[in-house]
Structures are given as structure tokens and as C-alpha cells.
């Protein structure tokens, strides 16, 4: 099998992973783009979602219910970060790091002291599984992931159009203005963090089912992957997609593209160990581009402003 043959063979897996990570990336979009907070809780809450879901399914709970529980537990993690930030005056980034660190222990507790716990598709009625990724039919994880994403994006489109949703957007866009218009920016920040981490944990729950196990390290670097998805989506589609629902769709496409590109570079012979380095460099470059653009633009415009 040639390069393209094996790539096409690996494509369904990459697409599914991209879609499932898309749920997570939407969570990152809510904090990073809407609330204007870089929330590092997600590295922990992704694994928490996976751990919760797997342990519940193993003890015989319905996978849908387990997914819902993972969402709720993720919201608790967000609540924790939110409280540290808004009630204890700890900077948002540090609050997230603290929660993330604490979650590592919590996750081990949830998984009864083990670093990973398997959940087999033969024994349990999992929602998504790697095994059926190339199968045509209802069991194919791409179908379910796509349906879940459509529902999720529809829900968020509605929510951010409501009075409460608008107030959340205002909180991120200009907190001074929000408070002057009677918006409680603290409680909105907490709400946004909860919603975001709920989604991240749900993504973790789906990913754990997909790969057939939960792992205490599955969230390592998740924030960077989420950001990569957000940024790829924006770079490619920001000119075309102006509607909010389309912007969220762009984030999901960003996640899918990320995994497809990943698959390609792996097949080109990149060492798996170097992946995180590559991801970090790509995200750093794309985050820096707007700053560089601004600098060059200003130099061309003014030139004489450097003395200030």
C-alpha cells in the first residue's frame, strides 16, 4: 500500500478524532474567544470526563447517562477555577493551573488509583468506538459525532443569542461596559468556565470510549490542541464565516484538519514523540501572526511613533 493508500485508510480515524476533539475545541473557543480567558483547567477536566465516564460505564451505567455525568463533573471543575479566579482574586491562568493540578489526583482517585482503565466495546454498549470507524452504518462513530456536534452548535447558537448569552459575550468583550450595564461579570465568568469545562469533559468522555480506555494523561496539552483547532478554523474561515454557528463549525473543521495534517506528517515519518513540539510551534506562530501584522502595519503607517 502506497502513501496515499495508507493515508486514505487512516482518514476515517483522523476525522473521528477531529470531530470528538471538536467538542473540546468549542469549549476552548467559549473561554478563549468569548470570555477572553485562557483557561488551563481543560488539561485536567478532559481526563476527568474520560475517567468519570469509563468508571460509570464499567459499573453498568448507561453510556448516555455516563456522558451526562462527565459533563456535570466537568462543570464542577470549571466552577472550581471560576471561584478561585473571581472569589479569591487569583489570576485566571493560575486558577486554571491549580485546578488542573488538583484534578490529576482527583482523576487517579476516580480511576481507583490506576493510571488507566479499559472499557471494551465487546462488554459495554459504547456510544463511539474505534472499531467501527471504517464500517458503513449506524455504529460508525463519525455519524454520532456529527449529530452530537450539530445539536451542540445549535444549542450554543441559541444560548449566545439569549439575554444571558449576550451578557456573557459582553463580559468577555468589555467587562467595564458590562458592569456599567448592570451585568455581573464575576458570575458570568464562572458560568462560561463551567459551560466550557463541561464540554471539554464530555469530549474526554467520548474520546475515552472511542479509544477504549481512559488515561490519566489523556488531557496533557489539550489546551494547545484546542487552541490549534480554534486558530486553524479562524485563519481559514474568518473571512467567509461571520455567523456564530458557522464560526463554531469552523472550529470543528479546524480540529478535523489538525488531525488530518497530523496523520500526514506522521506518515511522512515524523517521530510521534516530536508531535507536541510541532503542535506548540504551530500554535505559537499562528498566535503571533496578528501581533506581527499589527507591528508591520503600524510601521508602514506612522513610522515616527517609535519615540513614545
Amino acid at each position: 500500500m502506497g502513501f496515499f493508500g495508507s493515508l486514505i485508510n487512516a482518514l476515517p480515524g483522523a476525522v473521528t478524532q477531529g470531530l470528538l476533539w471538536g467538542v473540546m475545541a468549542i469549549g476552548v473557543y467559549i473561554t478563549f474567544r468569548i470570555l477572553d480567558v485562557a483557561d488551563l483547567t481543560v488539561d485536567g477536566s478532559l481526563a476527568t470526563g474520560g475517567a468519570c465516564c469509563v468508571m460509570l460505564i464499567r459499573s453498568g451505567v448507561n453510556p448516555w447517562l455516563a456522558l451526562l455525568c462527565a459533563f456535570a463533573v466537568g462543570m464542577l471543575a470549571g466552577l472550581c477555577t471560576g471561584m478561585l479566579h473571581t472569589r479569591c482574586g487569583i489570576p485566571a491562568i493560575l486558577s486554571g493551573i491549580l485546578t488542573q493540578l488538583a484534578l490529576y489526583s482527583v482523576n487517579l482517585r476516580i480511576m481507583q488509583g490506576k493510571a488507566n482503565q479499559p472499557v471494551g466495546v465487546d462488554k459495554y454498549p459504547l456510544l463511539v468506538s474505534q472499531r467501527f470507524v471504517r464500517e458503513m452504518g449506524l455504529r460508525n462513530p463519525i455519524l454520532l459525532a456529527a449529530i452530537l456536534l450539530v445539536i451542540l452548535i445549535g444549542f450554543l447558537y441559541w444560548f449566545f443569542g439569549t439575554e444571558r448569552g449576550c451578557s456573557l459575550r459582553a463580559t468577555g468583550a468589555n467587562p467595564n461596559m458590562a458592569r456599567a450595564q448592570g451585568i455581573n461579570t464575576r458570575s458570568n465568568t464562572v458560568l462560561g468556565l463551567m459551560l466550557s469545562n463541561g464540554l471539554v469533559a464530555a469530549s474526554g468522555a467520548l474520546l475515552a470510549q472511542y479509544q477504549g480506555s481512559s488515561d490519566v494523561n489523556m488531557g496533557r496539552g489539550a489546551i494547545v490542541i484546542g487552541l490549534a483547532a480554534v486558530i486553524i478554523g479562524e485563519v481559514l474561515f474568518s473571512k467567509v464565516f461571520r455567523n456564530f454557528a458557522l464560526k463554531l463549525t469552523a472550529v470543528v473543521i479546524g480540529a478535523v484538519l489538525y488531525y488530518i495534517v497530523l496523520q500526514i506528517v506522521l506518515q511522512l515519518g515524523l517521530n510521534t514523540n516530536d508531535l507536541k513540539l510541532l503542535t506548540a510551534v504551530i500554535v505559537a506562530v499562528f498566535l503571533a501572526i496578528p501581533y506581527w501584522k499589527d507591528k508591520v502595519f503600524r510601521k508602514k503607517q506612522g513610522g515616527g511613533k517609535t519615540h513614545a
Binding site: 444571558r164 459575550r169 459582553a170 468583550a173 448592570g182
Partner: peptide
């Protein structure tokens, strides 16, 4: 820059102000 939300539309900004002092629920924002 202080008084408005730059990433939101003109009508959305006005709608935020129209609800000053009210509970913000799940009704449409504008």
C-alpha cells in the same frame, strides 16, 4: 473604547443597555 462592546453589533449593544437592572434570562437578546 470603554462604553461599548466592540465585537458586538450596534443593536446588540443597545439591547444590553435596554436590560440594565433587569434579570437576564433565556429570552432572545434582541
Amino acid at each position: 473604547q470603554m462604553g461599548t462592546a466592540p465585537t458586538m453589533q450596534i443593536d446588540e449593544n443597545l439591547a444590553l443597555a435596554a436590560r440594565r437592572g433587569q434579570r437576564r434570562g433565556l429570552k432572545w437578546g434582541v
